[in-house]
Design a protein around this nucleic acid. Structure first.
Lengths: 209, 209
DNA sequence: TCCTGTGAACAACTTCACAGCG
DNA sequence: CGCTGTGAAGTTGTTCACAGGA
């Protein structure tokens, strides 16, 4: 069976939602609770989960803890996932702090090509010169690299990370890249998100809704 | 006619691609060029554009400059769009610099609740105490607010921005929010993107591709 | 009775294939 | 002849509606 890409993205959202419910002391949750909090329909929540098995109790709902564990297992983050940050400018440093606070991630190192930014520690994480990328990756074996570098350097960096065995790359610079075999590459484009908002704002009232 | 949401998101990507082509001196572009650079099919590029009119020359392609102007008009960013940043921590400051470099956006102010972060300027943009939000918004009339604040404060901030007439909000903290009438709200969830990568990495080889 | 799990109906989105113009 | 623009076909994703178990 083929699982929709959209389903996977939502699982990750459900997880955040469920951890919040658990923290609020909710031992059981309903698909409709999750749905309301995520702004989607309850049948979609159930359908998404049904691709992977049966996790609920008919007539009762889901045990919060068990559902969290199930989704963690589906995504594959039951262990702490090791992340490196490439580019220790403003964005890179912000990402480092942001990700290191999330329980699933363990930021193991950061890199920059500017000597002045190297040698220091940010929240206990060392910033290395980019020339030491290979050495540090071999030592720490990160699962994912988050790139906060300009688009010009993207292709070379992706190729290098790929050759060093890094399997996943998330880039904040959008640029067309030939994707090497065996690597997953995603983009986060903040400007595009804002432009989408602007389009929707401008169409308000223009189209009947 | 109803235009797919996915189409709008791609327009924004095409725009980046086209500006790159223009900068490289390409006066004409083909749908297949755009497609290759964005990793999609050429017929999808043409279909996306066809929702809004006919912009190309049969047998020749598109005039780069004209197509850029057409897409800018469709999205509604022919004028510089005013943006404010709420939250001047690491992420907020990084977003400020990042967005201010993009030609379409004009970051007009930033805000923080911490007095120590206020009163300064970052890249020529003033950081105000959050108590002055109303005053500064009335003066600058921003189109969009970008929120780099913790999820706990999100609902109140969205409500306040809405009452002050801000029409679009982009939040980096995912949290369930009742969306006031007349406001567009989007989220950028970095952790979700990474978790999606992890899922795909773990499924490699597991499923035949 | 209540809510899950799920085939079937429906809707959204993408690709195909080709007419038609420069 | 080459590439755009576009109905029609095909694919993917969501909602409906209800069977069935706690």
């Amino acid at each position: 069976m083929t699982i929709p890409e959209a389903t996977i993205r939502r699982l990750s959202i459900y997880l955040r939602c469920l951890r919040h419910s658990l923290a609020s002391g909710e031992e059981m949750v309903l698909s409709s609770h999750i749905a309301n909090r995520c702004g989607i329909s309850s049948s979609l929540v159930r359908k998404d989960l049904s691709y992977f098995g049966e996790f609920g109790i008919k007539g009762r709902g889901y045990k919060t803890k068990e559902l969290i564990a199930a989704i963690e297992k589906i995504i594959g983050i039951h262990n702490r996932t090791k992340v490196i940050i490439v580019g220790a400018g403003n964005l890179g440093r912000a990402l480092l702090k942001h990700l290191d606070e999330i329980p699933y991630f363990d930021v193991v190192a950061a890199f920059d090509k500017n000597e002045e930014k190297c040698g220091i520690e940010i929240d206990g994480i060392k910033v290395f010169h980019i020339s030491r990328l290979s050495e540090v990756i071999k030592e720490t074996r990160p699962d994912v690299a988050v790139l906060a570098i300009p688009p010009e350097g993207l292709q070379d960096m992706v190729d290098e990370l790929s050759s060093l065995g890094v399997k996943g790359v998330l880039s904040f610079a959008l640029s067309s890249v030939r994707i090497p075999r065996g690597i997953e590459l995603s983009f986060v484009e903040i400007a595009s998100e804002i432009e989408y908002l602007i389009y929707k704002i401008n169409r308000r009232g223009g189209t009947k809704k």
